[in-house]
Amino acid sequence: MMLFNRQQTQLKTLPHLDWLEAEAIHIMREVAGQCSNPVLLFSGGKDSICMLRIAEKAFRPGRFPFPLMHIDTGHNYQEVTDFRDKRAAELGERLIVRSVEDSMKRGTVVLKHENESRNKHQSVTLLEAIEEFGFDACIGGARRDEEKARAKERIMSFRDEFGQWDPKNQRPELWDLYNARSHKGENIRAFPISNWTELDVWQYIQLEGLELPSIYFAHNRPIVRRQGSIVPVTELTPARAGEEIVDLQVRFRTVGDITCTAPVESDADSVEKIIAETATTTITERGATRLDDQASEAAMEQRKKEGYF
């Protein structure tokens, strides 16, 4: 019997963040090598900021072999959209913005009521943009640790002509041999940071010294407490009758549509402090901050089947 021993772990191996980065670079290059017209989704959020750094590592000194695209709900924090535009300009890469509001004007998105979260309606605008530009692959920053339905998602995930994900009929994915083939009209969603956790993302941000929109760090903000969540008071999300507005020190763990993204109470005003907090937190990223995933156990799976990222 040849049993492994402890000495062997001392042999040369990549530290875990380097390994994750190398895997992500490999996946991006596979998309570039296999697909004819990919696009990278960039929202200005922390995961997609990591994706841009990975793209730089993958393709510099050349240009990215894909444009950047943001599906804007029109309900984003100004700091985040400003950051999005600034970052794209610094990189000298093309940024496409397509807006849910335009889909509403076209009548392809119909809200149930004026204040309904536009988050799930991004799917429609995304599919329209895919058709408009003829993209055969969308590279996104989704992670498997975010949500149960994502844990079974492939790194190269196939979507049919209607943008639908069929969880029971996914392509087997073996070794690092990715199959990003699709016929015209179909689409591949590629997830280079599938194997990252929230903590990995923060550690990578620290390692690479990445700049982030200010709302990720602790700041004071008027909020109300509603059904156990902290709801920021904004024009879109005013306080309801009887609710007490308080000024609280908070930070955002995820940034998305204002109407469905909640901050957490925190005094972590630096990446180091956020890492310390993330390592000891007791609530998942989505559980704490996404007001839309809690509706049912299968909420995310359902949205993904309908074409959501």
């Binding site: 149960k148 844990a151 029971k168």
Partner: peptide
């Protein structure tokens, strides 16, 4: 049990990936 069908049937059908450190 990640997927709706799996939760309904109480079995694992597909490969799921989990993370810890």
């Amino acid at each position: 049990d990640g997927l709706q069908a799996e939760r309904e049937q109480g079995i694992t059908i597909d490969v799921a990936y989990r993370y810890f450190s």
